[in-house]
Design a protein around this nucleic acid. Structure first.
Lengths: 358, 358
DNA sequence: GTACCATGTGTGAACGTTCTCATACATTAA
DNA sequence: TTAATGTATGAGAACGTTCACACATGGTAC
């Protein structure tokens, strides 16, 4: 009687029925269906060791028929390595990091690896929590694209202690003896200066950022070109401001115009600052590019300004790809020798904010 | 003799030594160190079941001393669920998606889950490859923030078939009977119109995008406010363009100025179009905001335009957080009933491109 | 005294894979 | 003939966890 009642309830749909139609098939099910052992299935599907063509065919067929999907977790448990790559960044809404992430992800997933984003923000605790997580989930490798504060270095070290390879990509972080990818700031500065000189500019203003290695290298690159090409040093004004911000760009122009030589062209340390430069020049009733040419760095939103900014574009997408490549070589245990240091070329993008000197 | 020789070689460092200082400790090691069984350790560390204070103390101490870290992979194998959340998006360099990703990640990681980015681009194959991967790695749940093409729907369905909960967040995608999060486009349009009317504008131009649900709802919202507040319908011009682009914004203004009533304020369907509007107005020698007020949508780069754009900001970060919340409730098996449909409020951000009508 | 509960602990079977080792047969070389 | 080699397959142990179950012990209720 009771049994009957239950049956009725269930039939009425009042009692939830088991939803899973059929348990996910495992390698065992495939083996049974193909009439072979699990190790044979493993050999066929894993593509290693011997298997007769006939067996191979039977296994393939059985796997297909059952809709077999290998369980990555079980594999990871055995191989002691998941196919997860961690990506440390401060914020993914930062276009730079997003571009790196995209390049990284593209290459990683073409190799069957997943990218886990670890947005640390400004919180040091968060970095170590992510480190913990990556350690626990047996991450295959990690890419760092963050400022190199102490907490992060500690995280990287603990990953390395657990034989998880680590690569840094852009950002001020420096992890001893690990692969590192950067953009060629010096060359970028060089390109900017070259562009302006080729347009006939001789009085050049450069707005750098204090205590920034990147900014310093860009200035060096620009200065180097100017020196090589006989631009009178006294006509080159270099000022330094405190941050990579629109306000700093604005301030930079003010500082430059206090100098004796008024520049006919200005190199700002990044696009955000270039925006401030445009604003200040407009206030001073100087037209861009007719009166003053302006050039930025980054190519972050240079398409959005009016006039559109000529800028030096950073190969962030490529940087992400290369980071993935280097990391994967380490992960797959290729003998690639010592730490590698890759410098990627920057690229000048000419838009509307620069023109020939008249 | 032979033994001796080997010993010598090894001692000389000619034979590579085992690099890992000490094998990562497992629950067994902790059990041995604490003098209890593995299940007791499990109970203490897992925080379930009985354990005497004394035992608890001993286990904790042993775990700490050994630097024990649970193996997430092994746990996942047993529980049949990893702590991975997949996030489908077309491109992470899109600020919207990046904001969603950040919100999602923040909540997910506070619950101990990892977010894997799945950038599908425009490639349908890629979507199914990601689906495959998530299935294989026993993902806990998935968030979709992509156009809802057929391939993606198929992926979502296969995830659902495997009892992996799915949530959609923004984007045109619609998965039957699954939780969905959207922004309140209608209210956004309403807010934009309200702002302009409160500034005294009576002749209002609206540039919408053909075949866009979002645009249609924004227009409805604006129209609704205008109607409610007695704005003469004939003074409201609505034009439709083909895409959300700068060029379309430009075209939109041309279309509007062909109408009888020249608007004193323009609502563009997004910031990119608003940029085109600014450009066209400048060409027509109309000043913004003195002659014409302009308002955009998205708050994507509204800070970068000159004048800075007044815009309706979309709560993408919050959307990501809510997506995580809903998804986690499903993952953790909370009884939250049927599909849920969350509409998040938009917010007006007043900057420089709107002013009182004179 | 028996029955029952609450508390505390250990045993050992899974989870689904990989991969070493053992086994078997066929072929070839000496 | 024997031995070695190549091909083909299977048995089963491990990976590190969780958790059902069994087994204690001591207390309380009848």
């Amino acid at each position: 009687m009771r049994t009957f009642t239950h049956g009725t309830l269930s039939d009425c749909g009042l009692v939830p029925m088991a939803r899973k139609k059929t348990k996910t098939p495992t390698i065992k099910d495939v083996a049974a269906a193909a009439g072979v052992s699990t190790s044979t299935v493993g050999r066929v599907l894993g593509g290693y060791g011997y298997a007769s063509p006939e067996t191979r065919r039977r296994v393939m067929k059985a796997a297909k028929q059952l809709g077999y999907r290998p369980n990555a977790i079980a594999r990871s448990l055995k191989t002691k390595q998941s196919r997860i790559i961690g990506f440390f960044l401060s914020s993914i809404t930062n276009l730079f990091h997003a571009r790196i992430a995209e390049g990284l992800q593209e290459v990683a997933s073409s190799y069957g690896y997943n990218v886990v984003i670890c947005c640390t923000g400004l919180n040091a605790n968060r970095a170590s929590a992510f480190g913990q997580m990556l350690l626990e989930s047996q991450a295959a490798g990690v890419v760092f694209s963050v400022p190199g504060d102490e907490a992060v270095i500690r995280v990287a070290q603990s990953l390395l202690d657990n034989d998880i390879p680590v690569v840094t990509c852009h950002g001020s972080i420096r992890i001893p003896s690990q692969d590192r990818i950067v953009c060629d700031d010096f060359q970028g500065g060089y390109l900017a200066a070259k562009h302006l000189v080729e347009l006939g500019h001789q009085r050049i203003g450069i707005i750098g950022v204090k205590d920034s290695g990147t900014s310093a290298r860009r200035i060096q690159g620009a200065a180097s070109f100017l020196k090589e090409h006989g631009i009178v040093p006294s006509r080159v004004s270099i000022v330094e401001v405190v941050s990579y911000s629109t306000e700093s760009g604005y301030t930079g122009v003010k500082l430059l115009s206090a100098r004796d030589e008024k520049p006919s062209a200005i190199i700002a340390a990044n696009d955000l600052m270039a925006l401030g430069v445009l604003e200040c020049l407009e206030e001073m009733e100087l037209r861009v590019p007719e009166d003053v040419s302006v050039i930025g760095f980054d190519d972050s939103f240079a398409e959005m300004t009016r006039p559109r900014l000529t800028t030096v574009a950073l190969p962030m997408y490529e940087a992400g790809q290369v980071a993935a490549q280097l990391l994967l070589e380490r992960i797959e245990g290729k003998d690639v020798g010592e730490e590698r240091f890759i410098t990627l070329p920057e690229r000048l993008v000419v838009r509307e904010s620069t023109t020939v000197y008249r």
